[in-house]
């Protein structure tokens, strides 16, 4: 049916046989294709190849730059981590040193305090001893005076000043030695 139609069409000149080669159409096609190739080669393909190359170069450069940045970041991170680890040790040393210093200061303060306390104690004891001595002396003097007075009244004779002083001195020596 369609064969008839196609055959009729071809036989009428209304259409060419499907496989008929038209040399003129072929030449037109060749010229159009070559013309298109020439135009595109100059105005499209060459810039496109350059553009694609430039884009790829940029991508490669970007990737390289990113890799370098990553390596730098990793190096910085490592350095930071090392620094952090060092800082920990340093901090520990500082703390230990601080503790040591504090202990030294503490011991020094304690020693000084103890020394001060000892000095204060000694001074207090010395003062007590001095006060005691003074009190004994006062008591001895008072006793000697009383005794001299009593003895003078008993023997009827008065002691002069030098006797009096000599007596007191002897009494004190005896009192002190006896005490």
């Amino acid at each position: 049916m369609l064969n008839q139609s196609l055959a009729g069409l071809i036989a009428s000149g209304a259409a060419s046989p499907p496989l008929e080669l038209r040399v003129d159409t072929l030449i037109f096609s060749l010229l159009i294709f070559i013309g298109l190739l020439a135009v595109l080669f100059k105005f499209a393909w060459t810039p496109i190849v350059e553009g694609l190359d430039a884009r790829e170069k940029r991508m490669v450069d970007d990737i390289d730059a990113a890799r370098i940045a990553k390596e730098q970041a990793e190096a910085q991170l490592t350095a930071y981590q090392e620094k952090m680890a060092g800082a920990d040790g340093e901090a520990s040393a500082l703390i230990a040193e601080a503790k040591s210093t504090a202990n030294g200061v503490k011991e020094k303060i304690m020693a000084e305090a103890a020394a001060d306390a000892q000095k204060t104690r000694e001074r207090a004891l010395a003062e007590i001893e001095a006060a005691k001595t003074a009190a004994v002396r006062d008591l001895a003097e008072s006793s000697v005076d009383s005794a001299v007075s009593l003895a003078g009244s008993i023997v009827g004779r008065s002691l002069d000043k030098s006797d009096h002083a000599d007596l007191i001195e002897k009494s004190l020596e005896q009192f002190t030695t006896g005490a």
Partner: peptide
């Protein structure tokens, strides 16, 4: 084809 690829070439020429 020319109307498509010539403008396309201009767009990507500098690697954009």
């Amino acid at each position: 084809v020319a109307a498509i690829f010539i403008p396309y070439a201009k767009r990507i020429k500098s690697g954009n």
